[in-house]
Computed example of a mutant assay.
Amino acid sequence: MTLTSEQQDFAASVAEFCRRECGTREQRDALTGGGRETHHDGLYRTMAQLGWIGAGLPTEFGGADGGMVDICVFLEETARGMAPLGGFTTSIIVAEAYRRFGSPEQRKLVLGGIADGEVAAIAMSEPEAGSDVAALSCRAERRTDQHGDHWVVNGQKTWCSNAHIANTILLVARTSSGKDKHDGLTMFQVPADTDGLRINGIDTMGGREVNDLYFTDCVLPEDAVVGQVGAGWRQLMAGLNLERLILAAGMLGTAQRAFDDTLAYIRERQQFGRPIGTFQTIRHRIADLATEIECCRLLVYRVAELVDEDPDRLRPREASMAKLKVTETAKRVALEGMQMMGGYGYATEYDMQRHVRSTLVSTVYGGTSEIQRDIIGKTYGL
């Protein structure tokens, strides 16, 4: 995988921006409330003005018409720079759904908003429907009254990333029931300030990231449907290439940052009269981790190139491989980094404990490692 000169310049510009705007712990603490918040609106909108948030969006909606490789470059560099841009991942996932299935009016509103720096979220999981998303029960019923046709939503969603900072939420709800639970699901456009929607934050080790959503007689207009009624499952599957790959690209940057922080520490930390990095046991660990990260990088960008070659082709095997390999590797890098840093790796004074927390959850969200392995196995007819 070789980046073009433009992509290399893009990566360098993003990296330099991150060093300048959030390169120190003091800067990041100021931007995130001491690590409690994962997204800073001002920083995000500045990047949007530079054209970076819309790098992968069509030009007609304010984007740069780039591809998956460009998105991966941005994700890797911002994650490596620890930029608080938590809203980007879900926004790009939502953007892909609207690009494929949204009406012209919906695309103009949502894609244009994302390019300008607005955040979008997607609501799928429920208390009883996590890995088995198709088992969801949050229901939208079509009704007609003196005001015309509309939808009424009732139910709960959970683990909804970035709903508390979102302008719009892409809801997946059940509109009918049949023999196959995958049938009868529909996507809806829901403004975050819609009456009947209540958003409650869930405290996590990573700070304010995810939310419970409660829909109580939430009225949506007839044209809130995104795509076709009852086709929500097929539409979700069409976006899995993007979702799994962007999660992998972000964790690739986090893995590299955890490695960089570990390397800087073991070069400086002295024990028994010399830097601990010169001891063979540490040196070999570093060699193994560096090799694994490079394997991840090759995999991520190879899959990104395949997606760019044929954006409409589903690649469940390759996308799941990328998500599985990179998140598991990132977790290993962070945990071994903490081990090599000893007590300092555990101290909140250093960033390693943050890397550990963010990489641990990466093997859970977006489809657990167990689910990714299951998907890969099924592609071999098992």
Rank of each mutant, 00 (worst) to 15 (best):
G366P: 04
M338F: 02
C296Y: 06
R297Q: 11
V326F: 07
M321G: 05
H355D: 05
L335T: 11
M340G: 00
A319R: 03
T348F: 13
V364P: 00
R313W: 09
Q353F: 11
T348S: 12
E309V: 06
T327V: 06
R354A: 09
G345Y: 02
D310I: 04
T327K: 08
G366D: 06
E336M: 10
T329Q: 07
G366R: 02
L299N: 04
L299K: 13
R354T: 10
V333P: 02
M321A: 13
M338T: 09
V300D: 02
Y350Q: 03
E309Y: 10
K325D: 11
L299Y: 08
E349W: 09
D351H: 10
D310N: 14
Y365V: 12
L299F: 08
T327S: 15
A334T: 00
Y346D: 05
L298Q: 15
S358F: 15
L314P: 03
K323Q: 14
L360N: 13
R332V: 08
E328S: 13
C295F: 12
Y344H: 08
E309M: 12
R313Q: 15
E336Q: 14
A322W: 05
R302V: 05
G342S: 04
V361A: 12
H355I: 00
V300R: 01
M321W: 12
T363P: 03
Y344V: 02
K331I: 04
E305K: 15
Q339G: 07
L335D: 11
T368E: 05
R315E: 09
R315A: 03
R313M: 14
E336N: 10
M341E: 04
K323H: 15
T363D: 02
R354W: 09
V333I: 10
A322E: 08
T359Y: 04
E349N: 06
E349L: 11
V303A: 06
Y301L: 06
L360M: 15
S320V: 02
Y350T: 05
M340R: 00
M321P: 01
S358A: 11
Y350I: 00
V307A: 07
G367C: 03
K331C: 13
D312H: 13
Q339V: 10
T329N: 06
R357E: 12
Q339W: 14
E349Y: 08
V333A: 01
P311W: 08
A347F: 14
C295K: 14
E309Q: 15
R357M: 12
P316L: 05
P311M: 06
E328T: 14
Y301F: 15
S362L: 03
S362I: 00
G337F: 01
T327L: 09
P311Y: 06
D351T: 07
A319Q: 06
G366Y: 06
D310K: 09
L360V: 07
T368S: 15
M352E: 01
Q353C: 13
L324E: 08
R332F: 13
S358M: 14
